[in-house]
Simulated assay, not measured.
Amino acid sequence: MNLSSFDPLWLCIAGAVFGYLIGSLSFAVIVSRLFGLADPRSYGSGNPGATNVLRSGNKGAAILTLVFDALKGYVPVVLALQLGLNEAVVTLVGLGAFLGHLWPVFFKFEGGKGVATAAGVLLGFSPALGGLVLLVWLGMAVVFRYSSLASLSAAVAAPIVQIAGWGFGPLSIGVIVMSALLIWRHEANIRKLLAGQESKLGQKAKPPTPVEPQ
């Protein structure tokens, strides 16, 4: 399909909206419902993501959540590349998918932290880029067994790897924005890590601590 005749501004808007709508599919909630599990927003960290679904004790549901959360970042980006869209539009498609996961319009804007979706977006941008960042995550997860610490390390590494390997451009801005938002979404985890209270990978879930009324 030749999209060169379309207005670049409208292509950017359409790409961002398309990515956002795909990203708004909260597979942690969808998969949990299909498996008859509790809503992942109601236990553990309260985060609708694969790590929290794993705390339910159902590894199959957690794996499916991880795969589909990654695919909803990967597929829109690859589709945009196949359509021959320029780097700015492709970046906005990926960023839109990531933002959809964080604030999903179909699930009352109660989204996850975006680690798997960001990984899918990076793999879509470049398999080499995504693969290198995933190696950082895997290495930290194996050594320390903290998903949050592995995610934070990967978030810091992503823009460094991207700029060092491919130079600065629209893609770099998208990666930097995703990394900054990932770190921000892990604010509570950072506090727990510093206090030595963070849960390790596979640790059984506990209900979220009730918030006392002000």
Rank of each mutant, 00 (worst) to 15 (best):
L92T: 03
S126Y: 08
S151Q: 10
V142F: 14
S148K: 10
A154M: 15
L92Q: 04
P104N: 13
G124L: 03
A150V: 05
L152N: 03
G139L: 09
F125T: 01
F144R: 11
A118R: 11
L102T: 10
L152V: 13
A141V: 15
P159L: 14
K113F: 05
A180Q: 07
V133G: 00
M178R: 11
K108E: 13
W166M: 12
A180M: 14
G112W: 04
V115P: 01
L149V: 04
G139C: 09
M178Q: 12
L123I: 12
S151E: 04
I163Y: 04
G111M: 03
G130V: 11
F168Y: 15
G111P: 00
G165L: 10
L129T: 01
V142H: 03
A116C: 14
G100S: 07
S126C: 09
G112N: 06
L134N: 02
G96S: 06
G130D: 05
V142P: 00
G112C: 12
G174W: 05
G96W: 01
G139N: 06
L95G: 01
L181Y: 08
S153H: 04
P170S: 13
S126D: 15
A157H: 06
E110A: 14
V143D: 01
S151Y: 06
F109C: 11
P159Y: 09
A180N: 08
L122H: 00
A180S: 11
F106A: 08
G112P: 00
L99P: 02
F109Q: 07
A154E: 05
L152E: 01
L132S: 08
P170E: 14
F144P: 00
A118I: 09
E187R: 15
P170M: 12
F107H: 15
I183D: 01
A155K: 06
A157R: 13
I190W: 14
G114W: 00
L99V: 14
G167E: 07
V105T: 10
I190K: 03
V105L: 13
L134M: 15
L152K: 05
L135T: 08
A180V: 15
